[in-house]
Amino acid sequence: MQAVLQILITGLTLGAMYALASVGLALTYGTMRMFNMAHGVFMTVGAYATYMAGSLWGLPLPLAFLFGLAAGGLIGAVMHLLVVRFMLDTEGFEVNIIVATAGVAILLQDLLLKYYGAYPFRQPAQIEGVFRIGDIAVTYQSVGILVLAATLIGGIAWLLTHTRFGLAIRATAMNREAALLMGVEAGRTYLQVLIIAGVLAAAAGILISSLATLSPDMGANPLLRAFVICVVAGLGSVTGAGIAALALGLCEAAIQYYLGVRYGFPVMLLLVIIVLIWRPAGLFGQQEVVRS
C-alpha cells in the first residue's frame, strides 16, 4: 500500500512535468506541422529566467515564476518572428524547420552557457515542507508541481476551447486552409501558438529544475521524453499528450520500483514500441488518410 502510494506520488509528479513539457510540443506540431527542436531550450530559458529573477534580483517567488513564464513566451515569439515566419509555406518545411529549430536550440544553449556557466545552480522556486498521508511523506513541492501543471494545462485548455483566439488556433490545427477562409491570419495564430508553447515549456523547465538543478543542457532529456510522449499520443494530439504523459509518468515510477530504477526509461521505450506496432498513428492519433 505504502509503495503504491509512493509510486502514485512520484508518477504523478513526473507525469505532470512530462505533460507540461509535451503539451506545448504537441500543440506546435498540431497547428504548424513543426517539430520544434528548440522546445527543450525553451524550458531551459524559463528555468534560468526564474533563477535570475528569484536568486539574483531577489524577486518574490510568484513574480519570479511569472517572469520565467514570460521569458519562455518571449523566446517563442522571437523565434517565430526571426526564423519560423520566413520558413512557413516553403517547400520541405517539415524537415527544414527541424534543422532550423535545432540550430536555434544550439545557439541559445551556447548563449546560456556563456552567460551563466555550467554551474548547477539551485532553482529558487521551491516550496519547503512535507505533510503525511499515512507513512508517506509528501513534499509541498510535489503538490505544487501537480497544482501548477494542472492549472496551466487546464488554463490553456480553457483558452483553446472557450476563446475566439483559442478557437482560431484549433481551427488552424484542424484545417489550415479553411481557417484562412474564415479570416484567421495564420501568421498571427502561429505566433500565438509559439508563445503558448514557450510559456508551457518554461513552466516545465522551472518545475523540472526545482527537482534537479539548472544546467544549460537541462532541456535535452525532457525534450526527448516529450517527443516520445507526443509520438505515443499521436502527433499533434494535445489532450492525448497530456494523458499519455501522466500514464508514462506512472508507468515509469512503477517500473522503477518493481524492476529497478535503471529500467525506467528503457522499459518505457519498449512499451512505446509495442504501442506503435499496435497503433502506428499513436493512441489518440488519426490514421493518415490518403487524399485524392
Binding site: R170, A171, M182
Partner: peptide, 17 residues
C-alpha cells in the same frame, strides 16, 4: 473542409470569426 474535431456550433462560430 469542416473543422472535423469541432462541434457543429463551434464550426459555425468559426464562420463568424
Amino acid at each position: 473542409q469542416l473543422f472535423a474535431g469541432m462541434t457543429v456550433e463551434e464550426n459555425l462560430m468559426m464562420g463568424g470569426y
